[in-house]
Design a protein around this nucleic acid. Structure first.
Length: 569
RNA sequence: GAUCUCGUAGCUCAGCUGGUAGAGCAAUACACUUUUAAUGUAUGGGUCCUGGGUUCGAGUCCCAGCGGGAUCACCA
């Protein structure tokens, strides 16, 4: 296969050979020991201090017998200054005149050592005394420049390219790296908070025979040895509850879940949910706990409890609002759902423009009303409490009202971020709820509900009263890092697989008798399929190829007409 | 899945009612030993996403496809 290389890529590839001719390995193996980094230099500057650092070369400015550039490492960028005298003290100036000026390129990794100084313009720099090429970049990075006012020019912004080539995005867009560092800090802060309470981080199966704990379309795969279908988990809830049955009093897991549904800027087929279950607690306790946890996360990961998101400021420092779903609907629609029949609910839903179908039960209708009229209004963190029993098959009935459940969702910026229950631990009720779900689905829901018999059996052995909470980690990170797309907080968001053009196979050409040196050029000259070559007149091929040879100044023998005729014979 | 919209040099983008494809940066060559979006001079670089159609002539208009984005649907 041949690759179509841009002129710039060809130059860089040719530099590999030139470097090797000078005895320089463009991809050396040995460790390069460093004693500092960009951040350290800028924060602990001391004139004349000897440093040894490594990084990627940016923004080279050749000024004749001296050059400036920036070296980018994982902590930031630092300017380096290379002069002909400091790196070539003897008569041989090749290292500067050839290597620095012509064979180093933007994007290459180099290691340098030298003394710190401040330039006339006041910029802290490394006066390079020796340098070493650590790895050559044969493909040029997008050139992004930032001027003295901090304005970014020619930013690398195409979402497709940024998401497909996150490695490039991370190199040239500093904010992207900051987002992912923040993500890890957020996750670490959550983990530390749970560990400090003595809760146990656990792992449960990703590959499940029954995809339970939520209602969503799963990804299906197949286990060959057992010859059974298997599913990627849509949730881990039922497994964590089994562990509470088993005697752990607090377990949590950062669960990568998979749902075979639509993708948009808030949904990715795989996403991360943190679920935690604590024995002997109820959902009131869990509200306090969730609030304290989020405050802890903000303080430790961001250093503040007031967070800017788009044009809004979200305050995690104040006590979170709490409102029941019934009151929320009353507040925003004036309609009181309590005690209403399915028909009455359906009529009201229709009256506010909801497309009501027969598949909708009471719970679904209430959820639709809430989603249409209330959800978007809760910008500051707000707990919505006491959902209808039909929408919450894994949640305990409300202690004061059997139509409702002891459930809350945390809304931030009009979106659901967390979901929690006083967990249903009555195995008889649980079995009945699963069966009710199936009845609902028989009315028209296309998603299959799987009854997990083993989970029911575990409840029969007894589960202590427990409260559980799940929080969408990706969404939380979005809010805390001011990103409006989930793709911005996932390193490698799902994209339609990229089609790489696999060029024609050289062997097909050499099989015709075309010489090895010519085969590639025959393809580049436009005969990129054997069919095209065979359809052309030998005289035309002959002329085209020699024209191509001349144009590209190829240092290979010209083609003779009888050679071409032999290929086509 | 539906609708709208975008696809032009390595990158960011211009390209008018259809008439031989442009800029900046990057690259190449030269000059310049404290510059910083370095500067100056010169040079090279294009499957205008792909395939059809209309036309004397298509980057531009029409149709289909591929890929992206936005909105909607789906996602308790």
């Amino acid at each position: 296969m041949i690759q179509n290389l841009s002129p710039e890529e060809i130059v860089r590839r040719e530099s590999l050979d030139k470097l090797r001719a000078l005895g320089i390995d463009p991809f050396p193996a040995a460790e390069y020991k460093t004693n500092s980094n960009a951040h350290d230099i800028l924060n602990n500057y001391e004139e004349g201090r000897e440093v040894r650092i490594a990084g990627r070369l940016h923004n080279m400015r050749d000024m004749g017998k001296a050059s400036f550039a920036q070296l980018q490492d994982s902590t930031g960028k630092i300017q380096i200054y290379i002069s002909i005298d400091s790196i070539c003290p003897g008569d041989d100036k090749t290292l500067y005149k050839e290597v620095v000026k012509h064979l180093l390129h933007f994007g290459d990794f180099i290691g340098v050592s030298g003394k710190l100084f401040t330039t006339r313009m006041g910029e802290i720099s490394v006066h390079v005394e020796s340098f070493m090429l650590l790895a050559k970049a044969v493909k040029p990075l997008p050139v992004v420049k930032t001027d003295k006012d901090g304005v970014v020019h020619d930013a690398f912004t195409d979402p497709e390219l940024r998401y497909r080539m996150r490695y490039v995005d991370l190199v040239v867009n500093e904010k992207v790296r900051d987002t992912f560092i923040a993500r890890t800090k957020i996750v670490n802060a959550m983990r530390n908070f749970f560990n400090a309470q003595g809760y146990l981080e656990v792992d449960t199966p990703v590959l499940q025979a029954i995809p339970g704990g939520a209602s969503a379309r799963p990804f299906i795969t197949h286990h060959n040895a057992l010859d059974v279908p298997m599913y990627l988990r849509i949730a881990n809830e039922l497994y964590l509850k089994r562990l509470i049955v088993g005697g752990f009093e607090g377990v949590y897991e950062f669960s990568r879940n998979f749902r075979n549904e639509g993708m948009d800027r808030t949904h990715n087929p795989e996403f991360t949910v943190m679920e935690i279950y604590v024995a002997y607690k109820d959902y009131y306790w869990m509200m306090d706990f969730t609030e304290a946890m989020l405050r802890h996360v903000c303080e430790h990961a961001l250093g503040t409890t007031t967070v800017q998101f788009a044009d809004r400021t979200i305050d995690f420092g104040k006590p979170f609002h709490r409102i029941t779903m019934t009151d929320a609907i009353k507040q925003f629609t004036g309609f009181d759902i309590s005690g209403k029949s399915e028909t009455e609910l359906a009529a009201f839903a229709k009256s506010i423009g909801i497309d009501v179908t027969d598949a909708m039960g009471k719970g679904k209708l209430i959820d639709e009303i809430f989603g249409a009229k209330c959800e978007g209004n809760f910008i500051q963190p707000t707990f919505i409490m006491d959902y209808p029993v039909e929408m919450s098959p894994l949640c305990k009935r409300h202690r004061d009202n059997p139509e409702l459940t002891e459930r809350f969702e945390l809304m931030i910026n009009g979106k659901e971020v967390a979901n929690a229950y006083s967990e249903l631990n009555d195995p008889i009720d649980q079995r009945q709820r699963f069966e009710d779900q199936i009845k609902l689905q028989e009315r028209g829901d296309d998603e299959a509900m799987f009854i997990d018999q083993d989970f029911l059996r575990s409840l029969e052995y007894g589960m202590p009263p427990t409260s559980g909470m799940g929080i969408g980690v990706d969404r939380l990170v979005m809010f805390l890092t001011n990103n409006e797309a989930i793709q911005e907080v996932l390193f490698f968001p799902q994209m339609r697989p990229e089609k790489f053009q696999t060029g024609p196979d050289l062997s097909e050409y050499t099989a015709l008798g075309i010489s090895d040196v010519w085969a590639e050029h025959v393809i580049r000259a436009g005969y990129d399929t054997i069919e095209k070559l065979k359809a052309a007149k030998p005289t035309a091929i002959h002329q085209n190829l020699n024209g191509y040879r001349k144009k590209n100044k190829l240092d290979i023998p010209a083609i003779q007409l009888d050679e071409v005729q032999a290929w086509l014979a």
